[in-house]
Structures are given as C-alpha cells and as structure tokens.
Design a protein around this nucleic acid. Sequence first.
DNA 1: ACAACTATACCGTCTAGCCGGTACAGTCGA
DNA 2: TCGACTGTACCGGCTAGACGGTATAGTTGT
Lengths: 190, 190
Amino acid sequence: MAPMPKNAAAPSVPTRDRLLDAFEDLLVEGGERSATLDAVSAAAAVSKGGLLYHFASKDALVDGVLTRLDALAQQDAENIRTAPAGPVDYLIRTSVHTGSPLDRAYIAGSRLAQGRDPRAMQVLTDIRRRWLSVIEEAVHDPDVAQTIMLISDGLYVNSSLAENELATQDHTDAAMTRLIALIGRLLPGS
Amino acid sequence: MAPMPKNAAAPSVPTRDRLLDAFEDLLVEGGERSATLDAVSAAAAVSKGGLLYHFASKDALVDGVLTRLDALAQQDAENIRTAPAGPVDYLIRTSVHTGSPLDRAYIAGSRLAQGRDPRAMQVLTDIRRRWLSVIEEAVHDPDVAQTIMLISDGLYVNSSLAENELATQDHTDAAMTRLIALIGRLLPGS
DNA sequence: ACAACTATACCGTCTAGCCGGTACAGTCGA
DNA sequence: TCGACTGTACCGGCTAGACGGTATAGTTGT
C-alpha cells in the first residue's frame, strides 16, 4: 500500500512522471509528430508495455500533461499576483523561456493545441483567462490588460521560434527592463 | 482551357495550386499530423499519383507552401509600408485572422515550424524580420517597434487559439481601434 | 505526340494499441 | 510459518492499419 522506494539507491522520480516529462520534451523539441508512444517510452527508459500500464492510450497521456499543466498554471497565477516587483513585471519576465516546468508544460500544451486538440485549446484558453484577470486586477484597465497579455503571448511565440538564434531578438534582462518601462507608458496618470 | 507549360505564369486554377491550397487547409484545420499525402490528394480531388506528379515528395510539398508563403509575405511587407492609415494600423488590423491567402499560408507555415521543420522556422523568422524593419522605419524607435511586433504576434496566437470561441476576446474593429490608440501612447513626443 | 493526369497495386516502415507473461511485495487463512 | 493468492509494476512480442513512396498501365485534351 505505502509508496515504495523499491530501490534504495534511487528514490528517483516515479515512472509515471518520467513518462509525462518525456512526452513533454518530445513535444517541445520535435513537435506533435515526433511524440509517438515508442519515442516516449524509449525516452523515459520504459518499455512500451510499461507506458501503456500507466497511460492506457495516447489520449490518456495527453490528459496527463494537460492536467499537470493546469495545476502548474494555477500555482503560477498566484505567483503573478503576489510577485514583489508587481504582476506585470513578473508576467513579462517569465514569458521568455526560462526552462521552468511550467514553461515546458505550456509549450507542450500549445503544440497539442496546434494539433487542434480541443482539450488542449480549452486548457490554454483557461490559463490565459486566469492570467488576464490577474493583470486586470493590477492595472484597472481592461484594454491595457489585454495589451499586456498580447505582449506576453508575443514573447512566448518569439522565444519559441528563435530558440537557437540569439541574433534576432535579445531577451536579455536589460531588454526586458526596457520593455517593462515601455509598458508603463500605456498607463495614464490614473 | 489555356495551355499549361509546366513552368510558365499560371493561368486559372492549376492543379498544382489546388494541391498547395489543400495542404495548407489541412495544416491549418487539423495540424501537421492530419496533413498526409492521401488526405491532401483527396482534398484537392486529385489522385495520389497526380499529387506525386507535381510534388515528388512531401518535402517538395512543404517547399511549395513555404515558397508561396515567402512570396505572399514579401508583397505584404510592401502593403504595410504603403498603407494609407499607416504601417502600424495595417499590421495590427491584419494580425487577426482575416482568411486571406497570406493569413492561411502563415498559419500553415507556423504549423510546420512547430513540427520543428528548420526551413519553416527560417522562413517565419525572415518574414518577421521584414515586418519589423518596416515598423522600425515607421516609428523610429527599435524598442517600440519590437513591442508592436510582439502585440501583433500576440494577436495572431490569440485568434488562432480562440478560433471558434467568440466570447473570450473580441477582435472587432472597435477593439482594434482602441488597441491602436493605446499603442500610440508608446510613442513619446514625436 | 505529348503533357497532365487517373487508377490500382504494391512495399517497407511506423504507429497505436493489445496481450500473455514475469517479478515481487504484501495479505491471509490454517 | 507456510503456501496459496492478490495487486502493482513492468517487459516485449505481436497485429492491423496508416504512412510515404514506387511503379506502371491506361485516359484525355490539345
């Protein structure tokens, strides 16, 4: 009954999570097409049978990453709300790829959404709505909040496109600071 | 029916273009995975042999859409530059899905890029760079130009995500006008 | 005659999913 | 305390069908 370490040397990440991680990685690095069951099981160093023990179908695997993404995003909404430097600062700075679990899960989710998976689209839409309401709460202007969200989305697209090209765009700390300053101009005297 | 010498300027509705259209549609509506050779030929009402007569491989088909996208985008950059209401107004208003050929081609291209096709990523990056330089030319401030591009990207993501949901976001003309007005605040004294 | 197809059959590989088997820890009744 | 049994976690071989691509013979419009 109790969770078993099973191996004194390695209380390592449970197989289930390793499979989810592998699926995400494949989605992020190779797109929907390369994220096959065989590839996932190989990447997680689990047999295909083992994979299907934990996730009865590919659909179940998709549900798994989506559920995890949703949980991560819910946490993040709280982080945005309570960020010391303010919600806008936090949102913008974390919109460029940081390699965080949420980051990876979010990109994986958007790959799935691009494959027109309705569940993925729903989850992504919900996450965005959650973020938007936090920003709205902070800036007290729906249009400005929308615009900030658009910039955040744009940053996501951008860093996902230019993953290996540094020249195109710089997402340095300095650049982000300038961006945030610029966003400040959107807010009038109020 | 005019004669169709393989490599000259296309007359009316050549099979080659219908195949490209079908491939784009499938990419847009069903993602990379659903855009198979069988599906493409069926959607274009052409036999598989006919498809492979025009495009010797799937790679050639990808090259086809990418080449067409690049040409369309090159034209568009000129449209942005010479738009009566100004480049920024034009860029923002055409960032939400209009169903134009460029629009469709661009989304198709980004599906391919999400599948990590390096050619697709290159073409998309080039297009963005071209747009950016037009906007830079118009606003005389690199940071502001960047930010406007981010907003444009954000709009694109958004309308692609909420394709069937009208409630989430309104991309009405009025909303776009408000957005453009807001962007005006980014520009200082000038 | 020739380009632009259609129709059909085929091939090797990949893919999702299924199934029988294994190892092993824990439970339970006698 | 022993043997029968149960549940969990996993292995790896298998199959049907999809996929990209090849091949080839026949048809049609100009």
